[in-house]
């Protein structure tokens, strides 16, 4: 176990290092930092001056080494645009995005898995078809559209939820539903197909034949095996939610790291980008570990390898 944890930790560090190197160079080629820092009406001289003042005229390797050296000691530097340190900026906005993504994921699991099971129990029935149509066709609706439609209906016309902002839990209802909606269909489809496969497997038939009660068979044996890929997918979906949060946060005017990341990428605010990537990458490593552990618990045979 200790060995396992250590290996995962090393992996995380390696991923973080790779991502930070790649991101650093990508940001550099995607536009001049000094130009975006100086603003749209700056002259060439302003830009040169800023380049010098911020040390952007030094070789890129040196700049990266500088950043890395500080980051290792826990200093993530200062944003080029905001007066705050990157850590203040990111840590003040992280909770909103996490809350959003968590509620989105919970919604999609709560909707996706039961509907997937029902659909598998009655394959090609009207409920299966309906669930599929609603779920799948909606994938073609972009997030901003869905978000604004819900906003117009529930906030503007019905007045049930606030239009925008993130001050209370009520502000999170529509964004979380929007976000969750997009993760539901793959989860639902995978559950359905997994269940279909497992239900026709011999051991389930045997279990039924032996006269075991259907509910325990369904949940203890069938679902347990069917959701293994779903668990893995859910971990990725959570990550996709962080990027889906970009649009949601901008539509609902929420202060999260999704929109901050987007803004920072467009402005080449390198220190902020790096820190957010670092956090995202830690989440992935953690989620991968978590989903592996959950799956090993669901199916002990996976552990043996």
């Amino acid at each position: 176990m200790l060995n396992f944890a250590l290996r995962r930790f090393l992996l995380a560090a390696l991923v973080a290092l790779t991502v930070s190197i790649v991101a650093f160079f990508l940001v550099r080629v995607s536009g001049d930092l000094a130009t975006s820092l100086a603003g749209q009406e700056a002259s060439a001289e302003d830009i040169e001056e800023i380049r010098k003042a911020y040390g952007l005229d030094r070789p890129i390797i040196v700049q990266y080494a500088d950043w890395l050296g500080a980051a290792v000691q826990g200093d993530f530097g200062e944003s080029l645009f905001f007066p705050d340190t990157v850590w203040e900026l990111v840590s003040s906005r992280l909770p909103t995005t996490l809350r959003l993504a968590m509620s989105g994921l919970i919604i999609s699991l709560l909707v996706g898995i039961p509907f997937g099971v029902i659909a598998a129990l009655r394959p090609n029935s009207w409920i299966d078809r309906l669930a599929m149509t609603i779920a799948v066709a909606g994938q073609a609706i972009p997030t901003f559209w869905m978000g604004l439609m819900l906003m117009v209906l529930f906030s503007l016309m019905l007045g049930w939820t606030p239009i925008s902002g993130d001050e209370s839990w009520r502000h999170f209802i529509l964004p979380a539903v929007t976000l969750g909606y997009y993760s539901t269909p793959p989860i639902m489809r995978l559950t359905r197909s997994g269940m279909l496969e497992v239900l026709s497997a011999d051991y389930i038939r045997t279990a039924y034949a032996k006269g075991l009660r259907p509910m325990p068979v369904l949940f203890k044996h069938a679902l347990r095996n069917a959701v293994i890929p779903v668990v893995a997918l859910a971990s990725v979906q959570f990550g996709h939610m962080l990027s889906g949060a970009i649009v949601i946060e901008s539509v609902f005017a929420m202060q999260g790291i999704g929109y901050l990341a987007w803004e920072s990428i467009l402005r080449n605010d390198i220190a902020v980008i790096q820190t957010i990537l670092l956090i995202v990458c830690m989440f992935y490593v953690f989620l991968t570990v978590l989903s592996d552990l959950v799956n090993a618990w669901l199916d002990p045979r996976i552990r043996v390898s």
């Binding site: 604004l148 503007l156 239009i163 925008s164 901008s250 539509v251 005017a253």
Partner: peptide
């Protein structure tokens, strides 16, 4: 107030906020 999305700005105006 700061709202990045134009459609949301309009919604707030129509909502009287």
């Amino acid at each position: 107030r700061y709202i990045p999305e134009a459609n949301t700005q309009i919604a707030e105006l129509l909502g009287g906020n």
